[in-house]
């Protein structure tokens, strides 16, 4: 199948969305426990986007964001990226460290490790569901963090897809804390080969 992602059937898309739903649900629960607040989660969106449009999902190529990226190794390689606007990242850091909102003005080493840990836990819980459903052996790298323009951060995680085609498949969920002080996006970015592997295990390969 898929040299490009464009040939996915509705059934396949639904299966992927459902995996995203369960994975992200578990991830939301773990985030909620970490900061001891309610977390709302959007219905996962499965998007097949031309490269220039991927950054639009998180506010445009120049939007200042914090990205925590983990590579996925094993039987279905790819990557997972947790992205949030800088303002949300600062607030999330406050929540994680039990400070009053507005205390953190700048992300230092301590805040970096706290946010990387969030990425770590979100990805681990998400992958737990994915591996449970597929029986695939997928393990994440350590997290890496960057604060920069959304376009710059995304290009660094989707370039491998350029070898195969001109689109990225993203399974994206938006998390927001109760009163919208923290909004973040979690992306699963499977490599095209991995997508076939996942679909096969789900029994929806054509």
């Amino acid at each position: 199948m898929a040299d490009e992602f464009m040939q996915l059937s509705d059934l396949q898309m639904d299966a992927l969305k459902e995996i995203g739903n369960i994975g992200a649900g578990n991830a939301a629960t773990s985030l909620s426990m970490m900061i001891n607040r309610r977390i709302e989660m959007s219905v996962p969106q499965l998007k097949i986007l031309p490269f220039p449009e991927v950054a639009e999902v998180i506010g445009g190529a120049e939007k200042l964001v914090v990205g925590v990226y983990l590579q996925l190794h094993g039987e279905a390689p790819g990557g997972m990226l947790f992205v949030l606007p800088l303002s949300s990242a600062l607030t999330l850091a406050d929540m994680l460290m039990g400070l009053s909102i507005g205390s953190t003005q700048k992300l230092g080493e301590m805040e970096h490790s706290a946010l990387k840990e969030v990425g770590n836990i979100l990805v681990a819980t998400y992958l737990n569901s994915l591996t449970m459903f597929t029986g695939l052996d997928i393990y994440p790298s350590v997290p890496s963090l960057a604060t920069d323009m959304a376009g710059a951060i995304l290009s660094a995680v989707i370039y491998t897809l350029g070898v195969i085609g001109d689109h990225a498949l993203v399974i994206e969920t938006e998390f927001s804390e109760d009163n919208q002080q923290v909004v973040g996006h979690l992306f699963l970015l499977p490599e095209p080969g991995s997508l076939n592997t996942i679909l096969e295990r789900l029994g929806v390969n054509v």
Binding site: G60, M149, G151
Partner: peptide, 9 residues
């Protein structure tokens, strides 16, 4: 001519 958000590109 302009291009925004060059990372590894």
């Amino acid at each position: 001519l302009m291009t925004a958000g060059l990372g590894s590109c």
